[in-house]
Amino acid sequence: MPTPALPCPCGLPAAYPQCCGRFHSGAQQAPTAELLMRSRFSAFALGDTAYLLRSWHPGTRPGRLDLDPGQRWERLEILATERGGMFETEGSVEFRAHYREGRHTGSLHEHSAFSREAGAWVYVGPLSPVDFD
């Protein structure tokens, strides 16, 4: 868990408690698809599988999620967003997530769909094939 003074893993300049930590704790819900995407990246970086499952659309959510303990998610780039605002019900986010696994570095490129279910943004799934570099 990051210390309160360190920037959030999602890449925004705010400290974790004021950024993605408030979503992970359940104190607030992400108001946009992009902020949900950022909070999910932070959850991957911190190993918070409960949040990842909770923020996944019930129709596409896996029964369980096992994260690779040797994989470290290090940096997120938001490449594009479409819709997904505070007053919308659907949106998409294209991103590149950079990781390290031992001495190997790589990235995951995905264009993801999001929808608002019962007032909360959830991750639906990829809109195109996921690309690992």
Rank of each mutant, 00 (worst) to 15 (best):
V122H: 00
A97E: 05
R100G: 02
H24L: 06
Y99A: 05
H24S: 07
P2E: 11
V93E: 01
S128L: 12
L36H: 02
P129G: 08
E74N: 09
S115Q: 12
R96P: 01
V122W: 00
P126H: 11
T49C: 08
P4I: 03
G11K: 08
Y123E: 03
D133N: 15
A80V: 03
L67R: 06
L12F: 06
W73D: 03
T3H: 13
E94W: 05
V130R: 15
E82A: 11
L67I: 09
T89Y: 13
A43S: 08
R116I: 08
T32R: 13
C19F: 08
P4D: 14
G125R: 06
R64A: 14
L65I: 00
L76I: 03
T32Y: 11
R116G: 03
E88S: 04
G70H: 12
T89W: 13
P69N: 11
R22I: 13
Q29L: 14
R96N: 06
T49N: 03
R64K: 14
E74F: 02
W56A: 07
S128V: 12
T81L: 04
L53R: 07
R40C: 01
G84K: 00
H98N: 09
C10E: 01
D48E: 15
P9H: 00
R40K: 08
I78W: 03
E77Q: 14
F87T: 12
P126C: 08
R61H: 06
Y16D: 10
S39W: 03
P7D: 10
G84E: 06
P17E: 07
R103E: 13
E77K: 14
E34N: 07
